[in-house]
Design a protein around this nucleic acid. Structure first.
Length: 638
RNA sequence: GCUCGCAUAGCUCAGGCGGUAGAGCACUUCAUUGGUAAUGAAGAGGUCCUCGGUUCAACUCCGAGUGUGAGCACCA
């Protein structure tokens, strides 16, 4: 006689053991129809799960995050079934849920085409109409291996054989299709209301580049057609914001074949770049960093000493000259240590914070490049803090504060923190790694913010905190980092004289707030959809005359604004005002200043914001005040 | 780097079952001096990514290369 307690606190008693679906039905037919699964005493189960003892139960529907995940996971099965109906020789592998959807990897003799995708989607629709019941079953490992061997599913056999332990495995069957799965799943194939296959691409078996390539089909699935539509609209919006597209439309930068992965910055793009750099320089100055600059070419031997050559030689550009091998610097740290090493340092000099807008070149694999986001030539807002072990925590904490403030100025309020710990390939003793990881953990805890542990993802010389920001599309972008390094200073002979007169090796903290200017500007472009806040906008205002009569007045106004340090221009072309407004609005210029006879007479300009808002007539001083305020607010609250 | 796709005017893109190409915007010129998202007309603009192959003939078909897109792998 199970007593079922529902989330609202109400309880129901049943005479016999009941399934989740039974409970849903007893509550109402609407709920029964919507029920996808249940959460019994906190654990997700199928709707067919039998409850025989008193329990807390929540019925999961598409409205729950869990419900959506179940739909997506089940949709992966649905797709696999459709694929195998169309292509019986395609072998199934894995099909997990991802953000907004799912994918399934197939081993097949050829690549799937967009037409295949359409056909698959159609068969998926057929299976939904067939309303096949999804049934869970349990099998021993041997039985399962036997079954999949018979079906010729070599990959499934491998998967089952690699699952540790020897408990029985659960399987889900719908019609002729059966797949190994932990579940839970939807009760029947009629549960799908809105899905779409979005793309097909190669993916390595088990994520290992030395393995064969499978065919990965991505799909998206939602609880309702409306949600699917909203999602597709969001994709469209993201496409419109693509920094590569906007970079061209707004004339910010370009790429060309002769310099793959290296941006040609145009005047407007470079203006943004310079503004960001000036800002960072100011922030660094205020925070007691000393800016330096180090060579682009450095003898290869330095990279061998630092340990980079042995790990990254394939990705370093090198230059031979006068029988010497140089590397074009792929990073700045070894050079910063050279600066530290000049002159004997005392503990009194620590912490010593060196900063450089360091131009770096890396031969990134061709397939990894992506607009400004991943390039072969970039400039880091790099910095290295030389300090003692005792100073690490305070330095990391200060850095985090600085980073939060900078992100806020750029209009990013949400920061996501992750700690990456020792990778397999690394230098330094475990003891040193213990120490480094602990100091970062302490610093993270001190921020009071949540953080995530990512084991094995640290740099080869030390663990790191990665700081990601969330842009206005909800996308997470990794930008800042701070890394503890107990190894490299020693390798490159950095020392300081301690209080007791002994020679000690300093700890080095590698840190960057923006990461690279290129990538960060790419993120900014997409975040603002090209409509940069006034402080960053390459052109802050443009003055538009209505007829030639006002040209001189416009030129004078422009000149006066320029003298105040604003980035403005005048558009005195013989064009209609509507045309000029349209053009400069499309160029996302924050303020359009219209001048006709009325304005000349009164000594004003008519101010229009790029969004279309009319701010009315303003005098020169009034407009300067407005623009100054706008610029001073940075991107906060934008 | 891997799988698959793509590469045509400055930009966005059409096009042709193999016979050297077209639109809109931009550009130039002329007319127009017009008050808040496109004034009208005319003109100019292309080695159809590169190199090979097939063919009487290749921008089109085939192969390779380069770049690029999606995804995978990589990311000091």
């Amino acid at each position: 006689m199970p007593k079922i307690t529902l989330p609202d606190g109400s309880a129901r008693e049943y005479e016999n053991p009941v399934t989740v679906m039974d409970v849903a039905e007893s509550i109402g037919p609407g709920l029964a129809k919507a029920a996808l699964a249940g959460r019994v005493d906190g654990e997700l189960v199928d709707s067919s799960c039998l409850i025989s003892t008193d329990a807390d139960l929540a019925i999961i529907t598409e409205r729950d995050t869990d419900g959506l995940e179940i739909i997506r996971h089940s949709c992966a099965h649905l797709m696999a079934q459709a694929v195998q109906r169309l292509f019986p020789k395609a072998q199934v592998t894995i099909g997990p849920v991802v953000e907004n959807g799912f994918f399934y990897d197939f081993a097949f003799s050829r690549a799937f085409t967009p037409e295949d995708l359409q056909a698959i989607e159609k068969v998926m629709g057929d299976i939904v109409k067939e309303n096949l019941t999804v049934e869970r079953s349990v099998m021993s490992r041997d039985e399962a291996v036997e079954m999949f061997k018979e079906k010729g599913e070599d990959y499934k056999v491998q998967i089952i054989e690699s699952i540790p332990g020897d408990e029985d495995l659960s399987f889900y069957r719908q019609g002729e299709f059966i797949d190994l799965c932990r579940g839970p799943h939807v009760p029947a194939t009629s549960s799908f209301k809105a899905f779409k296959l979005t793309s097909v691409a190669g993916a390595y078996w088990r994520g290992d580049a030395s393995n064969e390539m499978l065919q990965r089909i991505h799909g998206t699935a939602w609880g309702s057609k409306k949600d699917l539509k909203l999602f597709l609209q969001r994709l469209e919006e993201a496409e419109k914001r693509d920094h590569r597209k906007l970079g061209k439309h707004l004339d910010l930068f370009h790429f060309q074949e002769e310099a793959p992965g290296m941006a040609f910055w145009h005047p407007k793009g470079w203006s943004i770049y310079q503004t960001v750099q000036r800002y960072m320089r100011e922030v660094q100055d205020k925070n007691d960093y000393k800016e330096i600059n180090t060579p682009q070419l450095v003898d290869y031997s330095l990279w061998e000493k630092s340990g980079h050559a042995s790990k990254f030689s394939d990705e370093m550009f090198s230059v031979e000259s006068e029988n010497r091998m140089y590397a074009i610097k792929p990073m700045n740290c070894p050079c910063h240590i050279q600066v530290f090493n000049q002159g004997l340092k005392s503990y009194r000099d620590l912490p010593l914070r060196l900063a450089e807008f360091g131009s770096c070149h890396r031969y990134e694999p061709s397939g990894s490049m992506h607009g400004l986001m991943r390039v072969r030539s970039f400039v880091q807002d790099d910095g290295h803090i030389f300090c003692t072990e005792q100073q690490i925590q305070a330095e990391v904490a200060d850095f985090m504060t600085l980073l939060f403030a900078v992100y806020k100025d750029f209009g990013f309020d949400e920061v996501i923190l992750r700690l990456s710990t020792r990778p397999e390939k690394r230098v330094g003793s475990d003891e040193v790694w213990d120490k480094s990881e602990q100091s970062l953990k302490d610093a993270l805890n001190a921020t009071g913010l949540p953080w995530e542990l990512v084991p094995g993802e640290g740099a080869f010389y030390g663990p790191k905190i990665e700081c990601s920001l969330k842009d206005c599309m909800g996308r997470v972008q990794q930008c800042g980092t701070i890394q503890v390094d107990f190894s490299t200073p020693g390798r490159l002979g950095a020392q300081y004289v301690a209080e007791d007169g002994s020679r000690q090796e300093p700890v080095m903290l590698h840190r960057a707030v923006l990461g690279s200017f290129e990538r960060f500007i790419g993120i900014l472009i997409e975040h603002y959809a090209g409509a940069m806040p006034a402080w960053l906008a390459p052109e802050q205002a443009v003055i538009l005359n209505i007829t030639d009569k006002q040209s001189n007045y416009c030129r004078n106004f422009e000149e006066s604004l320029k003298n105040k340090g604003f980035r403005v221009s005048a558009d005195l072309r013989n064009e209609k005002i509507g045309f000029k407004i349209r053009e400069h609005t499309l160029q996302r210029i924050p303020y359009l200043l219209v001048v006709g006879d009325k304005e000349v007479e009164k000594g004003t300009v008519a101010v229009r914001k790029r969004g279309g808002e009319d701010l009315g007539a303003m005098t020169f001083d009034e407009f300067c005040t407005l623009l100054n305020q706008d610029v001073a607010s940075f991107g906060r609250g934008a």
